[in-house]
Computed example of a mutant assay.
Amino acid sequence: MVNSVEDILISYKKCTEHIIEILKREEFDSLKDEMEKRQCILNELISKTDKKSKTKKIYKKIDIREIEEEVQKLMKNKALLIKKKLKNISVKKTASSAYGNIGSSAKIFSKKI
């Protein structure tokens, strides 16, 4: 079945909206599959390069740019949040191992002189 450019762009928009929902729910495991699905839709759209002007008109008509900007903003914010959490975990791990090493160091003051 050959999809029209408009059908492809509508499915792209729906897929992008679904990605937004996944990001808001923080279900990152299913994000990869949805991104791959979106890439397949883009590949199909790219294969129809003979209809670029029609594609641009439909793209503007159904406001895909706003949704793409929202996805990009959400992804950046989630990535920064995850980086902060990882850094915090790293700091806690370092502190924990430093406190753990205190007990295993030589105890020079515990001997009777």
Rank of each mutant, 00 (worst) to 15 (best):
I62A: 11
E69I: 03
T16K: 06
K32W: 10
M75P: 00
I113L: 08
K56H: 05
D7S: 06
N88L: 12
S90R: 15
L86A: 10
K87C: 01
K84H: 07
L42H: 07
R25Q: 13
E36L: 09
L23Q: 05
E34Y: 11
L23W: 04
I41H: 00
E27A: 11
K60G: 01
K73E: 13
I10A: 02
K54H: 02
S30D: 12
T16F: 04
K61C: 03
M1N: 08
D63W: 03
S104I: 14
L86R: 11
D50L: 02
S47W: 00
K13M: 07
S96V: 08
K112F: 13
A98P: 00
K92D: 12
L74Q: 08
K57C: 08
L42A: 04
I64P: 01
A98K: 11
I8S: 06
K14L: 11
L42R: 09
K61D: 14
K76Y: 09
F28R: 10
F109T: 10
K73D: 11
K13A: 05
K73A: 11
E21G: 05
E66F: 02
S4T: 15
K14F: 07
E44M: 07
I113G: 03
V5M: 03
K24G: 01
T16E: 06
N77L: 09
K13G: 03
L9P: 02
A98G: 00
D7N: 01
S30C: 04
K84G: 01
K78T: 07
I10L: 09
L31T: 02
K37W: 03
I82M: 13
V71R: 07
N77S: 09
D33S: 09
I58P: 10
L86T: 11
A79K: 14
S11E: 12
S96W: 08
S110P: 01
N101G: 15
K13L: 14
K54C: 00
L81G: 12
I64E: 05
S4A: 04
R25C: 06
K111W: 09
H18W: 02
C15I: 04
K61E: 14
K51F: 01
K52E: 07
K112R: 11
K93M: 15
L23P: 02
I64Y: 04
E68S: 07
N88H: 13
S104L: 14
G103F: 14
E44L: 09
T94S: 15
E21F: 04
C40G: 09
E44R: 10
